[in-house]
Design a binder for these strands. Structure first.
Length: 571
DNA sequence: GCCGTTTTCGGCCCGACTGTTTTCAGTCG
């Protein structure tokens, strides 16, 4: 899959640089579209190339086809090199500054010789920008402000960071009497990382809603305030945008504000073909301008002959066509989840006792909970020796008797060694209810070795789940390199579930891997890896990730009732 | 640069906000 990312990033850079030229709007869109399609592929682009099927990627015509071939063959693209010679690389940084787009960057380059962020800062400080036609004092201030913002922020935040903040703001608005409130944007789509938080309010009292919003106690700065749109920055630097629309437009605004942008473009284009115009206020008939939908999101889709679909699916990965055909698949939801199969207690590196974990799982309405503490060689995680594991098994069985409503499974998160062997003897593993196998060491093996290591592990008859299969930590480290396709096949052949680890830093597997697993019919287990009772709530993020991969409930191990799970695990 | 149950050429989603404008271009989502 590495070549997919490489090709996509080359095409993305072409689009970035092309933007600096005149009259390239639609070329830019074409390149961006293909870059996005390629990064959403669930197979290796090299395989498509070998089979001569590159033109099956939507948006790929003759010109881009040739460029992809060149990238795959030579690892480079002459066209990109030419563009790089035409425009300094630093201009891409300049365009990262809020309110500085390609047009502004291009003019600053041509007229002030600004080639990077340092030049830009100097030009603003020396008041050279205001000398340009169409620029003024305010623009200079905003440029300096933008540069400071760029320097202070550390990119996107984790879903698990943004989500509670968004919910708290929603709650704040509800407490002020606004009950038509929703998250929007990438947060409502539950992407693994979030740029800024979007909130939508339906109300006829826009002014009062704006007042309530800017008076949020954690608001540090009002960045922009208009009649329908206001942006604030929270004390921790997070930007929150709020839009207010009339209740009669709430559904259309929710649809529009949720995105993704690409989903909306496709939908609106389709609406045009059908004789409608879609905007955030409603769906309007082109012939007479009459409003035909807008109150509810369902209504907006319905009038266009489309099924409603969960926000997580709205990434323009084919869902629009399925919705038109009435074939939106049922995807797993949080209410389908009957238990958690990967959690820790104070026996290893968790915080809470087995009793507390059991009560918390019961409170969440689960039928079962697996306690899977670390195995002996993970000393940093206070891994359990065989003796301590046996003690823990006894303990779990006692707690089980005291809590008849919830079924506790005795398990382990067992280390996979470099050869794919496990950290406990087979006899001990056989006696456990569930075995979750995981890699926590030796990440830098060759892809061939790592693939072999993982296949050996999932082929072990005692293993039930492969935990966080890629080992990635979002924003910190890439996962280890291996052949996901082969490992999935081995997992399927051996009846092993691939995990979606719900930890916000992991979300491993990710949405694309979930799509791969779905296409191949590989069972998935959505687990929290909770190290305390509150982290059991991370389930939400794992489920959302599976939803983003269109995973149906029947493919998810822990949607099984206790009875069915017991049979599956042969307990 | 791509694409076609109206098209192989003429389209390609739509609106809010800002700053510097006297009617709008650029940026953003």
């Amino acid at each position: 899959m590495d070549s997919n990312a490489r090709v996509a990033s080359v095409l993305e850079e072409v689009a970035d640089l092309l933007e600096l030229k005149e009259d390239t709007f639609f070329q830019v869109r074409a390149y961006r579209r293909v870059a996005r399609e390629i990064s959403s592929l669930t197979e290796d682009i090299k395989d498509l190339y070998v089979r001569g099927h590159l033109d099956q990627i939507p948006g790929v015509g003759k010109a881009i086809n040739d460029k992809i071939v060149e990238i795959l063959r030579t690892g480079e693209l002459q066209y990109l090199n030419d563009l790089r010679n035409e425009f300094p690389a630093g201009l891409l940084q300049v365009m990262q500054v809020p309110d500085v787009g390609p047009k502004t960057a291009g003019r600053l380059y041509k007229e002030l010789k600004v080639t990077n962020l340092q030049d830009l800062k100097a030009a603003a400080e020396q008041h050279r920008i205001r000398m340009l036609k169409g620029f003024g004092e305010k623009t200079e201030e905003n440029v300096l402000k933008g540069i400071r913002y760029l320097e202070s922020r550390q990119g996107r935040m984790l879903l698990g960071y943004a989500y509670p903040r968004g919910r708290a703001l929603e709650e704040h608005m509800r407490e002020r009497g606004f009950d038509m409130v929703s998250l929007g944007g990438s947060l409502r789509r539950m992407k693994e990382t979030i740029g800024d938080i979007d909130i939508l309010v339906g109300s006829s009292e826009a002014e009062r809603a704006m007042d309530a919003f800017v008076s949020y106690p954690q608001a540090a700065e009002v960045m922009l305030r208009g009649e329908t749109k206001t942006s604030i920055r929270l004390q921790d630097g997070v930007q929150v945008d709020m839009r207010v629309v009339s209740p009669s437009s709430y559904g259309a605004a929710l649809q529009y504000f949720t995105g993704s942008k690409e989903h909306n473009v496709k939908m609106r284009s389709l609406a045009n073909d059908l004789g409608y115009k879609v905007n955030e206020y409603g769906v309007f008939r082109l012939s007479d301008g009459a409003k035909v939908a807008g109150e509810t999101e369902e209504g907006v889709y319905e009038v266009l002959g489309m099924q409603w679909m969960p926000p997580e699916m709205r990434e323009d990965r084919g869902e629009v066509d399925l919705a038109r055909k009435g074939q939106v698949p049922r995807v797993v939801t949080i209410s389908d989840i009957c238990g958690d199969l990967h959690t820790h207690s104070e026996a290893s590196d968790g915080i809470d006792s087995i009793e507390a974990m059991a009560r918390a799982a019961e409170a969440r309405g689960y039928e079962y909970l697996a306690i899977t503490d670390h195995s002996q060689s993970l000393t940093i995680g206070n891994g359990l020796s065989a003796e301590r594991l046996l003690e823990s098994m006894e303990h779990v069985r006692k707690v089980n008797e005291a809590h008849p409503k919830i079924r506790l499974l005795v398990g382990t998160e067992v280390e996979i060694d470099e050869k794919g062997g496990l950290d406990y003897p087979p006899k001990l593993l056989e006696d456990l209810d569930i075995v979750v196998a995981a890699v926590h060491s030796r990440f830098k093996m060759t892809p061939l070795e790592m693939t072999e290591r993982l296949i050996t592990a999932v082929s072990n008859e005692n293993v039930n789940i492969l935990a966080h299969p890629t080992g990635r930590i979002i924003g910190e480290r890439e996962g280890y390199s291996f052949d996901m396709d082969k490992v999935m096949q081995a997992a399927k052949d051996n009846g092993v579930a691939m995990e979606v680890n719900s930890f916000p830093e992991r979300l491993d597997m990710n949405d694309l891997h979930c799509a791969m697993a779905r296409e191949r019919g590989v069972t998935i287990s959505i687990d929290t890896d909770a190290h305390n009772v509150r982290q059991l709530d991370y389930m939400l993020y794992g489920v959302a990730t599976a939803k983003r991969g269109w995973v149906p409930p029947e493919l998810v191990l822990n949607t099984l009732s206790w009875d069915a799970l017991r049979k599956r695990l042969k307990l």
